[in-house]
């Protein structure tokens, strides 16, 4: 495998890491008003307890999960500078929205519990919900547009605008990401909690899962019919089967298997996207001659070699210690594990 291809594969790995991990964080955030809202909670007090249970399932790990996208961005910059430059300047407004959403969501997660007032919490709850929904949707729109191609001219510049990206397939891509992450997140909650929240999460997963299956099936079909190749059909099939298996496992209360299923679904969907792209990294709809490819967008082989050595040494280390934190915080949570609200008055002596 030549170096640009290796880095193309490594970027697929980084995006997989990001979407599998932050995917359930987004799902949990979007489920805040559902599993922690009127639909399931007995009263306001119960809703608050449930929200805190939800938030604590991702509490120790969400921040590390998000680093995968920073690494993916940095790696794109280092390995394919033209891809990074064209995509980030071209998708200016969607990326701005993603950043604002992530800023508000992250602060929501960090700051929500730091004051006991309901008004304070309510504001951050909104930030957590919208800050999870918007990036899930917009990453779907953006990445689907990358695969489908966008107007790129001879100078490697994006010539479209926001509405270029909001075509029907792009929007479908956004919806698929939302539905998929909702299901993935609900199954994660079922896996990490016990009691009523666990049962409710499974019910939600069954519902959103059916919608996600239909939407994702349609999207993979549209993309495949447009530019499919045998390998991408194979990974699409794996994605579909794994998702069906996940829903089945969820119905039988086997949350571990269900979560494995949705994780495999996301991984093979990313694989499908990258296989559809290859050997392009950002095809042009103006002319195939303007396509950004793994060769004309890549860094020099010296840079790629340096990066390969660093990645080969440190990625396994990262996976090991991140995996270990999941082991440390493996215990299922229930409402009784949630401590009292914080007291803000000066500590009594």
């Amino acid at each position: 495998m030549d170096l640009p291809t290796l880095w193309f594969v490594l970027l697929a790995v980084l995006w997989t890491g990001y979407l599998v991990l932050e995917g359930f964080d987004f799902g949990v955030g979007m489920l805040f008003p559902v599993l922690g809202g009127r639909a399931f909670a007995a009263d306001a007090q119960d809703a608050e307890k449930r929200r805190r249970v939800l938030l604590n399932t991702i509490g120790p790990v969400w921040d590390g999960n998000e680093v995968w996208v920073i690494t993916a961005g940095g790696a794109t910059f280092a390995a394919f500078p033209h891809w990074y430059a064209t995509m980030f300047s071209g998708f200016y407004l969607p990326l701005l929205l993603i950043l604002v959403a992530l800023i508000l969501r992250n602060l929501g997660i960090d700051y929500r519990h730091k004051r006991p007032e309901q008004a304070w919490k309510g504001r951050w709850d909104k930030a957590i919900f919208w800050g999870s929904l918007a990036p899930a949707f917009l990453w779907g729109v953006a990445l689907t547009n990358v695969v489908r191609g966008v107007p790129i001219d001879a100078r490697k510049e994006f010539t479209g605008n926001l509405f270029t990206l909001l075509g029907p397939v792009g929007l479908l891509g956004g919806l698929v990401f939302v539905a998929l992450f909702l299901t993935h997140g609900a199954i994660f909650v079922a896996l990490k909690t016990d009691g009523p929240v666990r049962a409710d999460a499974r019910r939600v997963a069954a519902l959103t899962g059916t919608v996600a299956l239909a939407l994702a099936g349609a999207l993979l079909l549209v993309l495949g019919l447009g530019q499919g190749k045998p390998a991408s059909w194979a990974t699409s099939a794996v994605a579909a089967l794994a998702f069906a298996a996940a829903l089945l496992a969820n119905a039988r209360g086997r949350e571990g298997w269900a979560f494995t299923g949705t994780a495999v679904t996301i991984a093979s969907s990313v694989a499908t996207y990258f296989l559809l792209l290859y050997p392009n990294v950002m095809p042009s709809t103006i002319s195939p001659a303007y396509n950004l490819t793994i060769d004309n967008a890549a860094s020099t082989s010296y840079t790629l070699t340096v990066m390969s050595i660093v990645a080969a040494v440190f990625t396994p280390v990262v996976v090991l210690y991140q995996g270990w934190t999941y082991w440390v915080f493996r215990k299922r949570l229930t409402a009784q594990h949630i401590p009292e609200d914080v007291h803000l008055q000066a500590a009594a002596r």
């Binding site: 690494t71 961005g73 940095g74 790696a75 910059f77 280092a78 390995a79 500078p81 840079t303 990066m307």
Partner: peptide, 8 residues
């Protein structure tokens, strides 16, 4: 790009 990616 390399130091940025390695930083992450």
């Amino acid at each position: 790009g390399a130091p940025l990616a390695i930083e992450a």
